[in-house]
């Protein structure tokens, strides 16, 4: 870490020797390094990540807990949309594999996927926020507003979350489409699809309830990875939209060299990713009757 943490904390203000020593003791910086690390881990598991430099004396934990729900709102909503869009587009592409529809869908989605997330966010903000004024420009709800009903509150929140969710969805849905399509092309060659057709079922029923349903599993596995990627993406989204989630917290802490906050957020991210992966494993078990522990 560049520079003594105390100096960073004080922003370079000159301190008296005693004051400096007091600070060092306060932060436990006089203990050997390994002990500091160990204490950090133990505290972390108790939810104590220390105090933020920038928001001093607010504990890092509090800052993170305030921001986390907003990030989760955006990411989870977006993931649901991504899966749905990817499901329908992927199934259509696979059903019409080899035809123009398939090529167009593939190419289009690949192209969109190549655009940098933060730029997509910027464009959306510019067009729909600044120029058309359809959506608010920052924040997660209108500051200082009073609401006559919980419904109004929810509506306000959704209006603020809309652009971030849309941006994230546009940037990332393509993977789901690709995965489903590729898996489903294999599924369509299976005997039970022939049986389904012989049973006189309608095309859409075969496409979605027989073929796509069997191709679903790799998509679900991908949810774990996708979540981790989205978390990375949230840094950009929240920065562009000035949305007070964990991503923005990370960004701010980088700008201000708020190391405790940065570390805390990073720790939190890894933890959340692990939890989500665990949930995904459970969901997988539920969806594939062949795997039941």
């Amino acid at each position: 870490m560049p520079g003594n943490p105390v100096d960073v904390f004080t922003g370079g203000v000159k301190l008296t020797v005693e004051a400096r020593q007091a600070l060092i003791e306060r932060f436990g910086l006089d203990a050997p390094l390994w002990e500091q690390f160990w204490r950090y881990i133990i505290n972390a598991f108790q939810g104590d990540f220390g105090l933020s430099f920038y928001y001093f004396p607010k504990p890092v934990w509090d800052a993170m807990m305030e921001a986390l729900p907003w990030t989760l709102l955006v990411i989870l909503s977006s993931l649901i949309l991504q899966v749905i869009i990817g499901y329908f587009l992927g199934a259509t592409a696979a059903w019409k594999v080899g035809t123009k529809t398939d090529s167009i869908l593939q190419t289009f989605s690949l192209a969109i996927f190549s655009a940098p997330l933060f730029w997509v966010a910027m464009i959306l903000l510019y067009v729909f926020g600044f120029q058309l004024d359809w959506f608010p420009l920052s924040g997660c709800f209108t500051a200082g507003a009073t609401y006559s009903s919980p419904l109004e509150y929810i509506a306000d929140i959704m209006k603020h979350a809309a652009l971030p969710i849309i941006a994230l969805t546009i940037a990332q849905y393509a993977s789901y489409q690709l995965i489903l399509r590729n898996t489903m092309v294999g599924v369509l060659k299976e005997q039970y699809i022939l049986t389904a057709e012989a049973k006189g079922l309608s095309e859409s029923r075969i496409k979605y309830r027989h073929a796509a349903r069997n191709a679903l599993l790799p998509m679900i596995t991908f949810l774990g990875v996708s979540f981790a990627v989205s978390i990375g993406g949230s840094v950009f989204i929240e920065t562009v939209f000035s949305y007070p989630g964990i991503g923005k917290l990370i960004y701010d802490s980088v700008l201000c060299r708020d190391y405790p906050l940065l570390q805390g957020c990073f720790f939190m991210f890894s933890l959340v990713v692990l939890v989500v992966n665990f949930v995904v494993d459970i969901a997988y078990m539920y969806l594939d009757p062949r795997i039941r522990y």
Partner: peptide, 23 residues
């Protein structure tokens, strides 16, 4: 023709090799 399928003519294929939907 979809009405003919299964109502008047049906098909039995190799079930052991995946004629039945596994899910």
């Amino acid at each position: 023709f979809r009405r003919i399928r299964w109502e008047r003519i049906s098909l039995v294929s190799q079930a052991a090799m995946g004629g039945l939907n596994p899910v």
